[in-house]
Computed example of a mutant assay.
Amino acid sequence: MTIRIGANPIGWSNDDMQELGGETPLEVCLAEARQVGFEGMELGHKFPREPEALKKALAPFGMACVSGWYSAELLKRDADEEMKHLRAHLDLLKAMGSNVLVFAETSNAIHGDRSKPLSQRPVMKESDWAEFGRRITQVAEATLKEGVRLVYHHHMGTIVESENDIDAFMRSTGPAAHLLLDTGHATWGGANPAALARRYKDRISHVHTKDVRKAVMEESKAKNWSFLDSVIEGVYTVPGDGMVDFVSVFKELPNYSGWVVIEAEQDPKKANPLKYATIGYANLTRFLKEAGLR
């Protein structure tokens, strides 16, 4: 598998705040993504969750199913119990030919709660990383045996947000668990995404590309905003419309093979999804070429 470019429907219809783009039909999202040139889509809340129905929804647009987000609760339950909850989602991904599982711990996350500023996000005790990493690794080994690689999504408002968190996660987990490198969450969380790419390139199996508007990020921090309020105000945008140096990131991944996904949530009433997807796709393909990956 060489590099393929996909999209996440969150640019059309938000999952954490479903009123953003709630009126946009799934068919519009898929048609516009196809028009722009994307080869595949990640799942969102408007997608069918039964294999035949999902295949029927994607087929008219020639779209592959890239993967889909899974909300884990490994702080509350062991790996065997988590696998029971994961089973239906994992089976769907397998049926669709997806080879990565987007996985994030959300049992104590605050990114979906507008009443809580990001300053109140959960922080893991140093003594708890080993057990959490052991559970993650056990799940990752189980999914890998079934042909699907667990890729962990570090995310604002969760226990894996900062550079220190990401480093602790990678130290605590075994080789079966890989990282989903998200340029937007890394930058906002205080990490250099190119440095993360250099450090963990052998364990990065999925990439989310979103850009960060520096002025909005700084205002969010200064005014103690929640994650969703920051999104509404435009902290994220498509590649090439913010502060992230994507060419430097991609140059650190010279042997990368897999999906590169534009996942740049904005308020679609402020940022027309087709317009921004078009801009993002053009910039992303240019950045990949400049880095020698296409």
Score class of each variant (00 low, 15 high):
residue 2 T to K: 13
residue 3 I to C: 09
residue 5 I to K: 08
residue 6 G to S: 10
residue 8 N to E: 11
residue 8 N to R: 01
residue 9 P to H: 11
residue 10 I to S: 13
residue 11 G to V: 01
residue 12 W to H: 08
residue 14 N to R: 01
residue 15 D to A: 14
residue 16 D to C: 13
residue 17 M to C: 10
residue 18 Q to S: 12
residue 19 E to K: 12
residue 19 E to T: 15
residue 23 E to K: 11
residue 36 V to D: 06
residue 37 G to V: 14
residue 40 G to A: 13
residue 46 K to D: 05
residue 51 P to K: 06
residue 52 E to I: 00
residue 52 E to Y: 05
residue 55 K to L: 10
residue 56 K to Y: 05
residue 60 P to K: 06
residue 62 G to M: 07
residue 67 S to H: 07
residue 68 G to A: 15
residue 71 S to P: 12
residue 72 A to I: 02
residue 74 L to A: 03
residue 78 D to H: 07
residue 81 E to L: 12
residue 85 H to G: 08
residue 85 H to D: 13
residue 86 L to E: 09
residue 87 R to C: 03
residue 89 H to D: 15
residue 90 L to N: 09
residue 91 D to F: 08
residue 93 L to T: 11
residue 96 M to G: 07
residue 100 V to I: 15
residue 101 L to A: 11
residue 103 F to L: 12
residue 104 A to P: 05
residue 104 A to E: 12
residue 105 E to G: 05
residue 106 T to A: 13
residue 106 T to N: 13
residue 106 T to E: 14
residue 108 N to M: 11
residue 109 A to E: 05
residue 109 A to Y: 03
residue 111 H to K: 09
residue 112 G to K: 09
residue 112 G to M: 04
residue 113 D to T: 09
residue 115 S to I: 10
residue 120 Q to C: 10
residue 121 R to L: 05
residue 122 P to K: 04
residue 123 V to P: 00
residue 123 V to C: 00
residue 125 K to R: 12
residue 127 S to G: 03
residue 127 S to N: 03
residue 129 W to E: 02
residue 130 A to H: 02
residue 130 A to K: 13
residue 131 E to V: 11
residue 133 G to P: 03
residue 134 R to W: 09
residue 140 A to E: 02
residue 142 A to V: 06
residue 146 E to C: 07
residue 147 G to P: 12
residue 149 R to T: 15
residue 149 R to S: 11
residue 150 L to T: 14
residue 153 H to A: 11
residue 160 V to G: 05
residue 160 V to M: 03
residue 164 N to W: 07
residue 169 F to M: 13
residue 169 F to Y: 12
residue 173 T to Y: 04
residue 175 P to S: 10
residue 176 A to T: 06
residue 177 A to Y: 01
residue 178 H to E: 06
residue 182 D to M: 03
residue 183 T to G: 00
residue 183 T to Q: 02
residue 184 G to N: 00
residue 189 G to C: 00
residue 191 A to S: 12
residue 195 A to C: 00
residue 197 A to K: 08
residue 202 D to R: 13
residue 206 H to M: 14
residue 206 H to I: 03
residue 208 H to Y: 14
residue 210 K to G: 08
residue 211 D to I: 07
residue 212 V to Y: 05
residue 213 R to D: 08
residue 215 A to N: 11
residue 217 M to D: 04
residue 219 E to T: 10
residue 220 S to G: 15
residue 221 K to N: 04
residue 222 A to C: 02
residue 223 K to I: 01
residue 224 N to K: 12
residue 227 F to M: 13
residue 232 I to Q: 08
residue 236 Y to P: 00
residue 237 T to D: 13
residue 238 V to I: 04
residue 239 P to M: 03
residue 242 G to C: 02
residue 244 V to R: 03
residue 247 V to A: 02
residue 248 S to E: 14
residue 250 F to V: 06
residue 253 L to N: 10
residue 255 N to I: 01
residue 256 Y to P: 05
residue 257 S to K: 15
residue 258 G to C: 06
residue 270 K to P: 02
residue 271 A to H: 13
residue 274 L to I: 01
residue 277 A to C: 08
residue 277 A to E: 01
residue 279 I to R: 12
residue 280 G to C: 02
residue 281 Y to R: 07
residue 283 N to R: 04
residue 284 L to R: 04
residue 288 L to N: 06
residue 290 E to I: 01
residue 290 E to R: 12
residue 290 E to T: 08
residue 291 A to F: 08
residue 292 G to I: 08
